[in-house]
Write a protein that binds this DNA or RNA. Structure first.
Lengths: 132, 132
DNA sequence: ACGCAGCGTTACGTTTACGTCAACGTCACC
DNA sequence: GGTGACGTTGACGTAAACGTAACGCTGCGT
């Protein structure tokens, strides 16, 4: 039952997305579920792709980048050149993410300093109340 | 000369923003420079506010949140209650930022694992070429 | 047979933080 | 008295990733 086709609702429940999102991804050519009459049917392969899409988003890839990666993956099934391209792109992304983390760390440190200052001020108020 | 009013261009050069940005902030009531005829003149106080705005942005506050903080700051000049509110808000932001960093770390680790896998595959290709 | 839940398409709305003209004013300078 | 350089307002455009109607078809339960 785990490898049967799923309806759009099943997919939404499984992956925590809305129908609109799935149709949107389809529109962007990230997904291409089978049709049975009007209804969309998502195969195991579609589910694998959706997993990759969502993972890509967690990594901060844009949908467009994800699409390129999926295309590469599809077309270059194990072919070295394609893998290398994917690899390079991921490396760049990693660099981006580490830059982001550095900035975030910096901002966190700065904010903590401000908070320490504020805490000091508040403690001052507390002492004033106590001394009165 | 450091505490004289500045023109919009001076501001842009000093803070690395565009005129459009300054007008936009004014529109959003984040800034309210004096006018001399038509021209905007930014006082030392305006510059201080802009610093705070940009710092807030680095912290991930939205402009709307920044506006609220500036209002609090203005109206509650040193009054404990206002300071406390600002403090609380900053604490929440800090929590957000640390959550973000945790997610980012997680994503980085995951991406690194994928990269390691890719590197392995690429090494395999290299070995194949060497063995031929 | 009736009604409604659920899926479908199409198309416009939303959010944030500005960018990008367009059309005009004004000031110094040559 | 042009010619730029810089300033102004106003309005529309942009990006991403969907949300939100609006309206129709269809199957299912009663």
């Amino acid at each position: 039952m785990s490898d049967r086709d799923m309806t759009i609702r099943d997919m939404c429940d499984t992956f925590g997305v809305t129908p609109r999102t799935l149709r949107f991804y389809e529109d962007k050519e990230l997904l291409a579920p089978r049709r049975e009459g009007q209804k969309r049917l998502y195969s195991r392969r579609d589910r694998a792709r959706l997993s990759l899409i969502l993972r890509g988003k967690r990594f901060g890839f844009s949908l467009e980048q994800v699409r390129q990666l999926l295309d590469l993956y599809d077309r270059g099934h194990g072919k070295e050149a394609q893998l290398r391209q994917t690899y390079e792109l991921a490396l760049e992304r990693l660099a981006d993410m580490e830059r982001q983390r550095a900035e975030l760390d910096e901002a966190i440190a700065e904010l903590k300093r401000e908070l320490a200052w504020g805490a000091g001020k508040l403690a001052e108020f507390a002492r004033m109340r106590a001394a009165e």
